[in-house]
Design a protein around this nucleic acid. Structure first.
Lengths: 202, 202
DNA sequence: ACGCTTCCGGATCGGTGTTCTAGTGACTAG
DNA sequence: CTAGTCACTAGAACACCGATCCGGAAGCGT
């Protein structure tokens, strides 16, 4: 993971990993079946950093929000994870976080079919957001961004809305935008809880 | 894209692509700078399939829903795209769809900071959902799924909620769950439109 | 006939994931 | 003390990959 954090997913090589570990490259294959296993393990490992928040007394929304925000923070802290998100996440650490999510929603009174939709909706939203942000041309590729900016300005008549309000205009505010979308999802989930209505939050 | 559809992203090779095209492999480098360019082009190309829906007279929700559903359908139809989602999408076809999204939201009366949050929220949600579903062990890897199922049952006391209601239980219903989450997002966006309230939909 | 641009592709380089197989050293049974 | 087992290491090699070098066609305006 140190290697991944330092150099990214595509720079990870069995030989380089072995060198980092001070052994021969073929030795790794005694401990691991294929390179994909290494990546699967690494992807699951970062989820151990997502602390399972203690059940607070501020209600299920606070608990879910804490989990989701921690999840997102981990995704962004290890930006290489974006490249690995295209493989099924079934490791024990991921499952533990999903378990917490399901349990909290169940306890809040969410039932099928909204339960599955809620769990998936939240997960998909974090994953998509993390992917988008981690993927976005960083400061290092400022030229890519400015090139896109110029392309947009040059074709202003074809992309009027984008050129005026496009995502390339605002640089930061990832957090605020994410939080806003999250409350929309939570509002929708809450509205479906029988008898609760919006009272619990209002 | 025929090659990608048939064999997936990791099986795409410059040599195999050249063979498919009936030329030498090195010839490709005349038309394309690197392999990454091929992937970028392929990723943008599938978005041409997302028809920009004609502005219906059923309101902005219908338009946005049509776009998002078409987007999702394309992502699922070309499941290899999941592996490429970790690269910035700045191609003209992607931009055209984003332009439509921004324009429709603007016309509906969505303003900053909710505009960006809405556009990103919707995009992130589709991308996450498409990634999750395309990634999910398909019928071909039924053994992977059943192994996960058994692991969950074996550790039922550690994952009580998951074992009982987990996502591994329900097989289908991707569409229903996606639609539900989408309405939550749309409700949240709509609630933020000044003066509109929920009247437009109720 | 000439030169120029556009396009092709064989040979080749450095690097990759993975396997084969020979080997190491610690520990243990007799 | 010895022989043997077992967890572990690693050099050599294979098939393949993305990418480059460089020599060569083909079309074409003059």
């Amino acid at each position: 993971m140190a290697l991944l954090d330092a150099e990214g997913a595509d720079r990870l090589t069995m030989r380089r990993l072995a060198e980092r570990l001070g052994t021969g490259s073929t030795t790794l294959y005694w401990h691991v079946k294929t390179k994909d296993d290494v990546l699967d393990l690494a992807l699951d490992a970062i989820f151990a950093e997502v602390g399972i928040p203690p059940k607070s007394d501020e209600g299920w929304r606070a608990d879910v929000t804490a989990l989701i925000n921690g999840w997102r923070a981990v995704l962004l802290r290890h930006s290489w994870s974006a490249a690995l998100l295209s493989r099924p996440m079934l490791g024990p650490n991921v499952l533990a976080r999903t378990e917490f999510l399901y349990a909290t929603l169940l306890e809040a009174g969410v039932v099928e079919p909204r339960l599955t939709a809620a769990a998936y909706g939240l997960s998909n939203y974090v994953i998509g957001s993390g992917l988008m942000q981690a993927t976005w041309p960083a400061d290092a590729e400022r030229d890519v961004r400015s090139a896109a900016r110029e392309y947009l300005d040059a074709n202003r008549e074809r992309y009027p809305a984008l050129a005026a309000h496009g995502p390339l205009v605002v640089e930061g505010d990832w957090d605020a935008g994410f939080a806003l979308g999250l409350t929309w999802l939570l509002d929708g989930i809450e509205a479906g809880i029988a008898g609760a209505g919006g009272a619990a939050r209002a």
